[in-house]
C-alpha cells in the first residue's frame, strides 16, 4: 500500500516536471513532395508525406534537460554499446558545460542517444529523405537544389574548419519553411544515415567498411554537380551509430 502511494506521488511529480522541462524547440510544418535520393543502385523518386521539423538543432541546454530526466544517458552512465568514449566529451561532467555553449547545438552525441532524445520528446529522427527535402529550401525557394548561389553558400561552409566554439542555434539562415541551421552549423544525424550502400549488393562480397567511399567514380548519381550533397552522404555513411563526433548534432521531426 505504501508502495502504491509512493508510486502515485512519483507519477504525479513526474508529470509536473515534464511540463517544465520540455525544451523550447518549436516545430514547423514541412510540405511533403518527391525526392530523388542522391545516388542509389535503385534510384527512383520517393514520396515524402507532410511532416513537422524542429526549427533549431537540439542545443546543449536542451540536451542537459534530457540527461537530467533520463540519468541513464549521462555521460558517466551511458553504455559503450550506445555511445563511444567521445560522448559529450565537450561537457565538464554529467550535467555541466561552459555557459557560452548553452545555446550551441549539442554535438558528440551518438545516433542511439539522438534517437532516444527524440523519442522522449514524442518525436523521432528525420529520415535522410525528409532531412534533404527540408534542407533543399533556401531562404526564398522551396527547392533551391539547382540554385548555384545556394549550393556555393553551402560549399563555403563545408570548406571552412570547425570553429572552436560552435555558434548559437539560429545563427545561420531561416529557410523557406522557417527552419534554421540545416546548413552552416553542424552535420545532423538522420534515422537511416547508413542506408546508402554503395559497394556491391546482396550478391557481392562485403568489404564495406574500408571501401565505401574510395570508388566514388562509380556512384550512380543523379546530379554530379551537387557536391555538397555528396559531402553529406559521405559524412553520414562514414558514421557508425555509436560514434560521437565533434561536428555532428541532430534535430527531431514529428
Amino acid at each position: 500500500m505504501k508502495c502504491f502511494i509512493i508510486l502515485i506521488l512519483v507519477l504525479w511529480h513526474q508529470d509536473g516536471t515534464a511540463q517544465h522541462s520540455r525544451n523550447n524547440n518549436k516545430i514547423v510544418p514541412i510540405k511533403g513532395g518527391y525526392y530523388v535520393p542522391l545516388y542509389s543502385l535503385d534510384s527512383q523518386k520517393v514520396y515524402i508525406h507532410d511532416f513537422s521539423m524542429d526549427v533549431y538543432p537540439v542545443t546543449n541546454n536542451d540536451y542537459l534537460e534530457f540527461v537530467k530526466k533520463y540519468p541513464e544517458w549521462r555521460k558517466s552512465r551511458t553504455k559503450s554499446l550506445f555511445a563511444d568514449s567521445n560522448y559529450l566529451q565537450h561537457w565538464n561532467n554529467d550535467t555541466t558545460f561552459n555557459k557560452n555553449i548553452k545555446n550551441s547545438p549539442v554535438v558528440n552525441v551518438s545516433w542511439f542517444a539522438a534517437k532516444k532524445y527524440c523519442e522522449c520528446e514524442g518525436k523521432r529522427l528525420p529520415s535522410t529523405a525528409e532531412w534533404e527535402l527540408a534542407a533543399r529550401a533556401s531562404k526564398t525557394k522551396i527547392d533551391a537544389s539547382k540554385d548555384t548561389l545556394f549550393n556555393q553558400w553551402i560549399l563555403n561552409w563545408v570548406s571552412k574548419p570547425n570553429p572552436k566554439v560552435l555558434p548559437n542555434v539560429g545563427s545561420t539562415f531561416r529557410n523557406y519553411f522557417g527552419v534554421y541551421d540545416l546548413h552552416g552549423l553542424v552535420w545532423e544525424w538522420t534515422y537511416d544515415y547508413n542506408s546508402a550502400l554503395t559497394t556491391g549488393e546482396s550478391r557481392g562480397n562485403s568489404g564495406l567498411d574500408n571501401t565505401l567511399f574510395c570508388g566514388g567514380g562509380s556512384f550512380a548519381s543523379k546530379d554530379l554537380n551537387n557536391y555538397a550533397s555528396f559531402m553529406r552522404f559521405a559524412t553520414r555513411s562514414s558514421l557508425k551509430a555509436k560514434y560521437c563526433v565533434t561536428n555532428v548534432g541532430f534535430r527531431c521531426v514529428k
Binding site: 542509389s40 543502385l41 535503385d42 527512383q44 554499446l81 545516433w111 542511439f112 547508413n194 542506408s195 546508402a196 550502400l197 549488393e201 546482396s202 562480397n205 562485403s206 564495406l208 567498411d209 557508425k240 551509430a241
Partner: peptide, 20 residues
C-alpha cells in the same frame, strides 16, 4: 546499427545488406 549491418530496403521488396 549495434552490429554495424548496413541495410537498405530496395523498391522490389528486397534488401541490400552486408553479409557478416
Amino acid at each position: 546499427n549495434v552490429l554495424g549491418v548496413k541495410v537498405k530496403k530496395l523498391s522490389d521488396g528486397g534488401f541490400d545488406h552486408s553479409n557478416t
